[in-house]
């Protein structure tokens, strides 16, 4: 039997429900293990390793579900989605879709937030637009503000960030105290650490329009109810946190 056949048989034994007879014939187990318990040890290790990676990558979901339900979930996920990446930090990118019909309706969005946080955490901040260029800006209504791509704009009917903040904590009491109302926030990395701004609905809509490439004037035209103070507050935050990377 050649290397290719042996490796395929071993792989199938770990990934599938039954152990391949061919690989069993080729194995000399160590210790007091027999062939089945040896293969089972590798199979268990595979599931444990990938479950642990999902626990690291989606800690908030683990916190919400608790050990039993979380590991039931990870076992199903691992069976449907084998890892195809060398980096376990990338494992679980299909989890938001996998959770789309979960009885807790915010879990899928929470999984997206975890993925976005990791993306921001692992990125190097980009340079912001020259402050002099900003100061020299005349009428801003025709300007397109290029907002850093190291960001994530979230708008949910659930208090996602408040839930996410409780990850890894024994948080039952704190969880009960969460005010269940819609939430908008903008998560970003402009200094090497991930930070967050909470936004009103109008600020969220304005920022969304700017990110999509609209000029400030065009964006404001569609936001009749927005107050000047909301616009000023949003722009102050964008400037002081170096979130504008270019002007066009």
């Amino acid at each position: 039997m050649n290397l290719k056949e042996l490796q395929e048989q071993f792989l199938n034994s770990v990934l599938c429900d039954s152990f391949d007879e061919g690989i069993k014939k080729s194995m000399i187990p160590g210790g007091k293990l027999d062939k089945v318990s040896c293969l089972q040890a590798y199979k268990n290790d595979y599931t444990a390793r990938l479950s642990s990676a999902l626990g690291d990558n989606f800690e908030s979901i683990w916190t919400i579900l608790g050990d039993e339900d979380f590991f039931k979930l990870t076992h199903h996920y691992i069976k449907e989605h084998p890892s195809s990446h060398y980096d376990l930090g990338e494992f679980g990118n299909e989890l938001p879709n996998f959770l789309i019909n979960h009885e807790l309706p915010y879990l899928s969005e929470l999984a997206i937030l975890e993925i976005e946080f990791r993306r921001l955490f692992n990125s190097s901040p980009s340079l912001s637009v020259d402050q002099e260029k900003l100061a020299a800006l005349g009428d801003p209504s025709e300007v397109r503000f290029n907002i850093t791509s190291l960001s994530y704009l979230s708008s949910s009917k659930f208090p996602l960030y408040r839930i996410w903040e409780l990850r890894g904590q024994n948080s039952e009491e704190k969880f009960k105290k969460i005010e269940w109302k819609p939430e908008n926030f903008f998560m970003y990395n402009s200094t090497g650490t991930v930070q967050v701004l909470f936004l009103s609905n109008n600020q969220k809509d304005l920022l969304k329009a700017l990110i999509s490439g609209q000029t400030l004037g065009a964006a404001l035209e569609k936001l009749e109810g927005i107050e000047e103070v909301e616009v000023q507050e949003l722009f102050t935050n964008l400037v002081i946190n170096n979130l504008i990377v270019d002007l066009k």
Binding site: Q7, L11, Y46, S84
Partner: peptide, 9 residues
């Protein structure tokens, strides 16, 4: 493991 299914072992 294989490229499409890494066993991470």
């Amino acid at each position: 493991g294989a490229p499409e299914s890494n066993l991470h072992n």
